[in-house]
Amino acid sequence: MSDLTPCDKVLLVQAELDGELDAAQAAALEAHRTDCPICRASQAELMRARGLMRGDLYEPMPDDVRTRVMARLRQVAPPPAPAPRRRRNWDWLRGPSIGFGLGAACAAAISLLVVLPERNDLIDQVVAGHIRALQPGHLEDVVSTDQHTVKPWFDGRIDFAPPVRDFAAEGFPLRGGRLDYLGGRPVAALVYQRDKHIIDLYVWPASGAGPHLAGDTTIQGYNVVHWAAGRMNFWAVSDVERGQLDDFAALWKKAP
């Protein structure tokens, strides 16, 4: 479709805007763009198009849709710990007949996809969530050091308003936030940086008067600190030293 583009470099102009060019390619493009009015005009147009999409255009999933999807998944979920030979048993499910008779087939052995996890289970999930988030491109859904940008981002994406604070002055700058899924519910994850280390802070409403867990522990080299405040659960996880993570938790606990 390059015959539709007025200069064969305009796709490179776009690639630069999308962060797809390395330094050498970008420098070569810059040299060309200086002499090419088409590419300069194209760049302006591409930036206008991107500017148009700055608004909140993401389609948030209604709660009732989420509930129905989760119910459906629970219905078709296989047993939680299938023995290797069991896997063969549900190969037949992969055909187009998914859904038919499945409820009956699995009814006896249904596992709840989403169960209230045991405490240890939850700690594992917190750590696993953190490790997963460290993979490229997964850390933040909203990138901002401004708590007033991060906090409203959660509106409409989650059924509670998590407290968001920046502790840049204390050496724990806010980097952004994302949605995560822990213990069978969506939770807010706030991302902080401590030198070269990432700290994930998971926040969600405390349900009822559950036991307050002393959650300080270390798993796979990651330190985990748990506390509850203001009817919210907090779980901080990071590979920073235990003392620094405790400092971070202390800042939160004494924040107004």
């Binding site: 993401y58 389609e59 999933m61 710990a81 299938p82 290797p84 896997r87 994406r157 949605l179 069978g184």
Partner: peptide, 28 residues
Amino acid sequence: SSRGDVPNAVGNASFELVVLPHLDAAYN
């Protein structure tokens, strides 16, 4: 690790951890 003999065998807990965080993106 209990199912290390089948490297790709993952249980529901993992589906929950690996796939469900992207449910909102899927809806969008």
